[in-house]
Design a protein around this nucleic acid. Structure first.
Lengths: 214, 214
DNA sequence: TAGATTGTTAATCGATTAACAATC
DNA sequence: TAGATTGTTAATCGATTAACAATC
C-alpha cells in the first residue's frame, strides 16, 4: 500500500518551496512539461536528493526516467502552502516598511490578503494606503474578530511590538509575521515568524569582516 | 596559555548576535553592570550554554560567580560585527521596498551607510530619496568604484536582479544584500545574503496549514 | 569556604548528502 | 532491454544541548 500521508515539512523545506515554485513557473513558461530533480538542483544550487525529499512533502510522485510533471508540481506546492485560497491578514504599523508591504501586490498570490491596516497616528487613521483603509489600533481586536482575520503583519517600532501582538491575539489571530526587532511572548498555539533585518545584515557583515567563514 | 584567537562564528550565531546586543543595551539602560548567561538565555528564550558559546566568538571572558560585563559585551559585539566604522553601501532599485530601506535611519548604527541609490526610471534619477541621491543604473560600476562602496543593497524586480548584481560586482562591491526573489550567480569571493520574504511567508503559511509542525 | 557561574568537552538532535534498490 | 531517474534508507555533517571540571 503506497503511503499517502505527507511527511512533515521542516522549516528549511518550507523555505525552499517558494524557490521551487518560482523555477517551475519559469520552466512551464518555457514550454517544459517534465523536469528531473537533477535539473532543479542544478538551477537552484542544490543537490538532487534534497530536491526529491523536499518535493515529497507535496505527495507528488515522479516517474522514473521521466521526472516530475511541472504543472502538477506547481499546483501541489501552491496547495501545500495554502496559496489557493488566500487567508485574510491585517497590518499594524503604517510606517515606511508597513507602507511598502501594503504596496506589494504579490502577497495575494502568496496566499495573503491584507484587508485592513492599523496605526496610532491621527494623520493616518481614516486614510487609505495603497487601497487599504487605516483604522485606530484600539479597534484592532474587534475588527480582526469581525472580519475573520487570521494573520497579523507586525511593522511597529520595537517598544510597541509586544502590546500590539497582544491586541492581535485578543482579536483571534492565529499567526504573526513579525518585522519588529523584538521577541514576542504569545500563547503556544500562535505561530510567529520573525523577519529580522538586523540578523540578516549581521550575517552579511560577519562574513565580510571574518572571511574564513564556511 | 589562554587561546586568544576567536572561534569562527556560524550563521546561526551571527544571526543571534544582534539580539544579544539589543538585550544588553536594554540591561545597561536599566543600570545593570554584570549579567549571567542564564539571565540572557531566559530573556531571549534560549539556553545558557548556547549563549556562552555565542558570546565566546567575541573573545570576551566572563567571571565565574559574576557573569559578563554588560558594557564590555556591547562593545565587543559591535566591534565583531563591524558596527564601529560603518561600511559604505549603495542601493539599487528605488521602488517601495527600496524607498522604505532608504528611510530607515537605523542602518548606520548597524554598520551600513547608504551613500547612493540607483534606478532606471527617468523620473527618479536626479531626485533625492530620504536624502540619498538617485543615479542612473548605468553609472553604478564607475560610481561604486570611485566612492569605495563595499556593499550593494539589491531591491530590483526579479528579472533585473542578475544583471544589476553583475554591475555591482563590476563596481568592486564585496557583499550583496539581496531582497530580490532570485538566485544570484556571483564570483566565489562575493558574499550574498538573501532576504526572502516569500520563504518567510511560506514558513508561516506552512505552520498554519500543517499545525503538527515541530 | 561554599556555591554560583564560566568555558569546554561529550552527547544528542536534526538536516543534508550519499548510496542504492526499485521501476519505468 | 539498458539506462536514467525516482523514493528511501544509511552515513555524514553541523548545530544544539547536556554534563562537568575549573574558578572566583
Amino acid at each position: 500500500m503506497p503511503h499517502t500521508d505527507t511527511r512533515h515539512a521542516s522549516g528549511p523545506t518550507l523555505r525552499r518551496l517558494p524557490h521551487y515554485h518560482r523555477l517551475l513557473r519559469q520552466l512551464r513558461a518555457e514550454g517544459r512539461v517534465h523536469v528531473s530533480s537533477r535539473l532543479i538542483a542544478r538551477r537552484l544550487g542544490a543537490v538532487a536528493p534534497q530536491v526529491r525529499k523536499d518535493l515529497a512533502v507535496t505527495s507528488v510522485v515522479g516517474r522514473p526516467k521521466v521526472g516530475y510533471d511541472v504543472a502538477e508540481l506547481i499546483e501541489a506546492i501552491s496547495a501545500y502552502l495554502g496559496w489557493r485560497n488566500a487567508v485574510k491578514a491585517l497590518l499594524a504599523g503604517v510606517g515606511s516598511l508597513g507602507t511598502a508591504l501594503l504596496g506589494y501586490e504579490g502577497f495575494r498570490d502568496a496566499g495573503l490578503d491584507i484587508v485592513a491596516a492599523f496605526d496610532v497616528s491621527r494623520e493616518k487613521i481614516g486614510t487609505h494606503v495603497h487601497g487599504v483603509a487605516v483604522y485606530p489600533l484600539s479597534d484592532l481586536p474587534a475588527l480582526a474578530d469581525r472580519m475573520g482575520v487570521r494573520v497579523g503583519v507586525l511593522t511597529v517600532p520595537a517598544e510597541a511590538a509586544q502590546p500590539v501582538a497582544n491586541l492581535m491575539v485578543a482579536g483571534g489571530i492565529r499567526g504573526i509575521w513579525n518585522f519588529a526587532p523584538a521577541r514576542l511572548d504569545v500563547p503556544a498555539d500562535i505561530v510567529v515568524e520573525d523577519v529580522s533585518l538586523s540578523s540578516s545584515l549581521a550575517v552579511l557583515s560577519g562574513r565580510l569582516n571574518h572571511p574564513d567563514s564556511a
